[in-house]
Amino acid sequence: MVAAALAAPETQAGTALVIRDVSHEFDLHGRALPVLDRISLRTEPGEFVALLGPSGCGKSTLLRLVAGLEAPRAGRILVDGAPIAGPDPSRVVVFQDPTLYPWRTVWKNAALGLEARGTVRSQRDRVSEALEMVGLSGFARAYPHQLSGGMAQRAALARALVNDPSLLLLDEPLGKLDSMTRITMQAEIVRLWQRSGFSALLVTHDVEEALLMASRVVVLSDRPAQIKAIVPVDLAYPRHRGDPRLAELRREVLGLLGLEANW
């Protein structure tokens, strides 16, 4: 059983996501603070979609709703036609902070999902595989405090990939990294996405990052977030920062965000 499961690579097609009229609000000192305003979005299996918006607009909240960490106040979210009931390992989040457990080695951090579901014994190879995919094989026994910011985020990525997600939720995963590490990891995430075939939903406030990585960019307004526009990025991978078409798209998106004058 186990051998057979390992032999057949799980080239799971990504998830189709339907967000229908979702609104959400926070309670702030007894007052309702609206964060999402009737968001509707449909993604195809295997698509890489970026949610782009100003800081604090509510895009991370939308991601938490899709992850099932919170339930929306209004509207429905369907994954492959079924409503979301709660968190599920098929929809794993990579957060802005790596949030590795400091008391676990890199290997044990990556094995977290398997351990939580009690399958770590039979699937040890998956952990090593995932660490290899993100280039951390040599650091399996290191503790998080011994890693650089980029390495820690790679470890968090490996921890997510071990679960073989059909929808990878990326919540500004590169937001706190230095610019050089960022550039490398943008390319790496795209490469992993192309190789594994999962769907990806990336939250970011970096226009260039969204355009470099995603096949469609959803531009959100200030809080409460509404969808301003959906910009398809009709460029083949790997993309290049100097591409004139990318510059054109960037101008268009910055215009949508009201930043055209500052370009």
Binding site: P89, L112, A116
Partner: peptide
């Protein structure tokens, strides 16, 4: 956030 991480992975 430690709980969020574990919960999304089915803990």
């Amino acid at each position: 956030a430690y709980y969020d991480v574990a919960r999304t992975m089915g803990a």
